[in-house]
Write a protein that binds this DNA or RNA. Structure first.
Length: 834
RNA sequence: GCCAUGGUGGCGGAAUGGUAUACGCGCGCGACUCAAAAUCGCGUUCCCGUAAGGGAUUGAGGGUUCAAGUCCCUCCCAUGGCACCA
């Protein structure tokens, strides 16, 4: 009886069996030996899964399977980050309601995801756009509000004229909209903010204990941007007012020759002198037309105007001119900066341009002026000069003494400044979770009581890009608010940033109270609605046992947004008393990016490659293995399908190897392959070497070398005359994480019981890693001159003796004196001759 | 500019300071076939040589070492991130 390897039929068969057996459902009531792993959940676009999805999910699943075979109770859920702009844009274009298109996309995507054959526990699926989910997004807002972490403020925001929406700074980093590329403009708006900056230090400290890529931690540290320094108070000449500057280098304070204030600083209009009023107002008007992007990145050439006001130097009492310049930002520090041209390149440029004084106040050991571009080096070595009582003191020491003096005189204080800004969670969009706030007739905000959650997203809206929130046109929304709260009350029309939805979904996967998150059950049942019990985000015991996520896999592009927001939310929830851990993700791995001809694949560039044809032809197993075989998981690479044939052959050869045992009940199996090599029976060594290699490679996400180890093993086994059944079973187990469908088939073919993923991962015997003989390389003066084959138990002296007699080696030693001989056990002999 | 990561055959890539180029693709030759595909066998870093063997080689140049792709220094290039942060 001969079977053929038909991946399509074989994979469908096993996917069905897995589903029928409920093989991947995790029992969350018991967290012993748990392993919680998941990938960053996808946005359910209407497109088919692309190469990037497969590249991310296939290997991640292989890792999860490996952990299960290590005896861990693996929980690997999947969900959908389903709120967001694309569905809304699609609605504007086609009139299809975002809920309809999203639900359809989710269904399609589930079907496609299932084809990969991942061990997802679909019973725990989440969809952020369902009321079952977003009532918790709203609950989170209420908690933030209750604990004083949510507040409203007017602020200048980045506005995308095309998307008609506000963008966070990080969504408009190069001055264009992250989603559509339109240049971002500047616009003031009332927004809800979450006070993430209160957690700056904790977010920084928590990084140390995380098993994350070092570069990601560095990025977060830079993003949070802690700097130590002090505020200095400057009294304004001729009035009662004073200004404060923040500086990290107060040691240069005697070098201050001017001070610069931001054009949007609230005190500026009252400080400016009558003579300078017109010039300053013109400057303010001019810079207010610039977006924050232009102010920060637009022209390197600094502009500014003299305000006519003077400040009193806190030490020398000298009059220091106050200038206004838009390179100083209101959003960082105090919005006022001291200018030290002698020791700062930017200040130097400014001083030269406007003819301001340049005064040196620190120097390096050679007596040269220090420009603070290498602060650590100079701060250690330099000295303060021409600075009154502080002259001659080392910089670091002087810095301390100057702050002490300022604090004693009430002219300043130590301060730690962070670059991190509060999180604007408001979005003027329809397709998001409504912010659960209502306004009384006087316009004061009030939280929507928890019993009214979910505070549902109205459905009677029009999808025309009008520039204001589409929710403003919902009659149902207004009527609902007035009915519940009274005449003249109005709802908050903004919805929440989708980063809010994704900041706690790892907890929603752990929901055990039977809240079905299935796409088809978007409407809450009446009984659920009537139930006025407080919402439980996650059962405390389940959270305690299953958090944190042991392995989180996703793109590096989320290093400074999602991955900081999620950490902040977890920390806040811990402080509120709802969870016991403060960090959500214990270990993090970033998959690499698959490019096409060097460019990142994107729909807008039209260079997205669909894997469908390849999967149809070769099957999921082969395609997954091919993606893994391309190179290290964390490095990605440029797409090419030229090598898939090699994996195809590999799968077929494996299948053939197992096929020969079909009709043979005996333990030993005759290999009928043409490749039989009579010379040696080294299969056990090869097997145990492969076990060792694969066991080390998979948890390190080195799937490429794990697969090549398996190929090498296959090359050996194909040359064996007889293969015993247990060897084949071990091979099936080794293959199980990498090609799950084929592995189950092979497992069945060689008489295995149950599913292969439920088997214990094989262990290797160190004694079997070496064979009877070993090959030793022989070098003379560092050059390879030959190699010798010796028994594995040979002594050092014997090996060196044999090496020196090797024909070619002897040639190079002859007539010389041996100055040194080095033996590296099991590897090489090196002769150094004179 | 700063930080991070990387640069190895025709290609993807492998290599605890110890035989560089594993594994695979591609290519060449051969077997099977009427033929092709598929499959199998052999070969394949480059140069010289029939071969044995020799020489060169991990972006460039120095250094440490018996021994460097790997460690150190100076550059060059690529990718990612940050960037008027006071």
């Amino acid at each position: 009886m001969s079977r053929t390897y038909d991946p399509k039929a074989l994979e469908a068969k096993w996917q069905k069996r897995w589903e029928e057996a409920g093989l991947y459902a995790a029992d969350l009531s018991d967290g012993s030996d748990k392993y919680y792993t998941h990938v960053m959940f996808p946005y359910p676009s209407g497109d088919k899964l692309h190469i990037g999805h497969w590249y991310n999910y296939g290997p991640s699943d292989s890792f999860a399977r490996f952990m299960r075979m290590q005896g861990k109770k693996v929980f690997s859920p999947m969900g959908f980050d389903a709120f967001g702009l694309p569905a809304e844009n699609y609605a504007v274009k086609t009139g299809v309601h975002p809920d309809t298109s999203t639900r359809k996309n989710v269904e399609t995507m589930i079907t496609q995801l299932k084809r990969i054959g991942c061990m997802y526990d679909w019973s725990k699926m989440v969809n952020t756009s369902t009321p079952e989910y977003y009532r918790f997004t709203q609950w989170l807002f209420l908690q933030m509000h209750k604990h004083g972490l949510a507040y409203k403020k007017a602020g200048n925001v980045n506005w995308c004229p095309s998307c008609q929406t506000v963008l966070a700074n990080e969504q408009a980093q190069d001055g264009t909209c992250e989603r559509c590329g339109t240049p971002v403009i500047h616009k003031p708006l009332e927004q809800w903010y979450w006070n993430i900056t209160r957690y700056s230090q904790q977010l920084l400290d928590g990084l140390d204990a995380l098993d994350w890529p070092e570069k990601t931690k560095i990025m977060q540290r830079n993003w949070i941007g802690r700097s130590e320094g002090c505020d200095v108070v400057w009294s304004v000449t001729g009035c009662d007012m004073s200004l404060e500057t923040f500086t990290t280098t107060v040691d240069t304070i005697y070098g201050v020759t001017f001070v610069v204030i931001a054009p949007d600083h609230p005190l500026l209009p009252t400080l400016v002198t009558p003579e300078q009023r017109d010039a300053v107002h013109a400057y303010i008007a001019q810079s207010s037309t610039k977006s924050e992007f232009d102010r920060q990145f637009g022209d390197k050439d600094k502009t500014g105007v003299c305000t006519g006001a003077f400040l009193k130097h806190p030490f020398t009492g000298m009059s220091i001119p106050l200038w206004v310049a838009d390179y100083v930002l209101m959003t960082y520090g105090t919005g006022v900066v001291m200018g030290v041209p002698a020791h700062d390149q930017r200040d130097m440029d400014f001083a030269k341009k406007y003819g301001l004084d340049i005064v040196q106040s620190i120097q390096n050991p050679e007596g040269e002026s220090i420009v603070y571009d290498n602060i650590d080096k100079y701060a250690v070595l330099g000295t303060i000069i021409d600075s009154g009582a502080f002259s001659g003191i080392a910089i670091l020491d002087g810095r301390k003494k100057i702050i002490d003096q300022l604090e004693r005189a009430g002219m300043g204080r130590r301060k730690i400044q962070y670059r991190l800004r509060d999180w604007c969670v408001s979005r003027q969009r329809y397709w998001g979770a409504p912010i659960p706030i209502v306004y009384d007739p006087k316009g004061n905000p009030h939280p929507v009581p928890e019993e009214h959650l979910p505070w549902t997203l109205p459905t009677d809206v029009e999808f025309n890009p009008t520039g204001e929130s589409p929710l403003k046109h919902s009659n149902e929304f207004k009527e609902r608010t007035e009915k519940l709260f009274g005449k003249g009350w109005t709802p908050e029309y903004d919805t929440m940033d989708t980063f809010v939805c994704s900041s706690f979904y790892y907890l929603m996967y752990l929901q055990t109270q039977g809240a079905s998150m299935k796409a088809e059950s978007c409407q809450l049942s009446a009984s659920q609605k009537k139930n006025n019990q407080p919402l439980t985000l996650v059962h405390p015991e389940v959270e305690k046992q299953w958090m944190p996520v042991d392995m989180y896999i996703g793109g590096a592009e989320h290093a400074c947004m999602h991955l900081i927001y999620a950490r902040f939310v977890m920390m806040a929830l811990k402080d509120f008393g709802y969870v016991s851990h403060s960090e959500p993700f214990k270990k993090l791995v970033h998959q690499g990016v698959i490019t096409n001809k060097g460019a990142k694949m994107s729909k807008s560039k039209g260079n997205v490659v669909s894997p469908d044809a390849l999967v149809d032809r070769h099957g999921s197993d082969v395609f997954r293995m091919y993606l893994m075989f391309m190179g290290p998981f964390t490095e990605g690479g440029d797409w090419s399908d030229t090598g898939i044939k090699g994996i195809d052959r590999f799968a077929l050869r494996l299948f053939k190897l197992f096929e020969i045992i079909q009709d043979q009940p005996s333990q030993k199996t005759k290999n009928t392959s043409t490749k039989i090599d009579q010379s040696k029976g080294s299969s056990q060594t090869a097997l145990h070497r492969a076990i060792k290699k694969i066991t080390e490679d998979i948890p390190a996400f080195r799937f490429n070398t794990a697969i090549s180890a398996l190929m090498e093993l296959l090359n050996v086994l194909e040359r064996e005359q007889e293969i015993d059944r247990s060897t084949l079973q071990t091979v099936a187990k080794l293959l199980a994480p990498l090609a799950p469908h084929l592995a189950d088939e092979l497992w069945e073919m060689c008489g295995g019981e149950g599913f292969v993923v439920d088997q214990r991962w094989p262990s290797f015997d160190p004694a079997l890693l070496t064979s009877d003989t070993m090959t030793i390389a022989v070098q003379v003066n560092g050059k390879l001159r030959g190699s010798i084959e010796v028994p594995s138990d040979s002594s050092k002296d014997d090996i060196i003796a044999t090496a020196s007699k090797q024909e070619n080696v002897a040639k190079f030693i002859a007539g010389t004196s041996i100055a040194k001989q080095i033996y590296v056990p099991g590897k090489l002999v090196s002769f150094v001759v004179g």
